[in-house]
Amino acid sequence: MLKVTNLACTRGEHQLFAGLNFRLAAGELLQVQGENGSGKTTLLRALCGFIQPFAGEIRWQGKALSELGEEYFANLVYLGHANAIKDELSALENLRISSALSGCTVSDKDAIAALRRMGLRGRETFAVKMLSQGQRRRVALARLLINRARLWILDEPLAALDVGAVGLMQEIIGEHLSNQGLVIFTTHQSLQVSGAETRQLKLS
């Protein structure tokens, strides 16, 4: 479904990677590995269409990203280093807005259910600035639960999460894969998803 051919990205004058090829089919999980500064985030941002690659092509369901335009974004959910949540709003309000930005409305019932599953029971209506780093990350991750996009691009999803939440993420990713979803992620921790083999892509 996702096909990357001969991709090269640069940052300023410096070439991060070149000649990158991979395919990802439905139900597959890809871990991007590499040292700090090897271009993991740049690769993920290029896959989102934020960055024009220096060379090469990214195709989704046989069509190049430039052809697809906004249509592609409906298939995609991206979670970056920044949580994209507002300190002044409550977890529930944040979730409602991020859901709307991904093109869907969400009922309060579904949103609360998603937050509770992420372990935020009782904190749904707290202003996010009252929450800890890990809890904020959980609010951001709750977005995955209310989204129907097939391709998940996750940049360090496990940052600031405790052991329990890492287990939960493994479970959620496993469910998404069994629903024919695709996941691309980077992490420096170990993430074992049962029932799916983690493919590795090494950047150097």
């Binding site: 934020f50 906004e70 974004f73 994209a84 991020s98 930005l101 991904s102």
Partner: peptide, 15 residues
């Protein structure tokens, strides 16, 4: 821009 919301806005499936 700083909290990453702008990135999400660019991924909105509308113009």
């Amino acid at each position: 821009y700083q909290d990453g919301t702008l990135e999400q806005m660019m991924l909105v499936p509308q113009s």
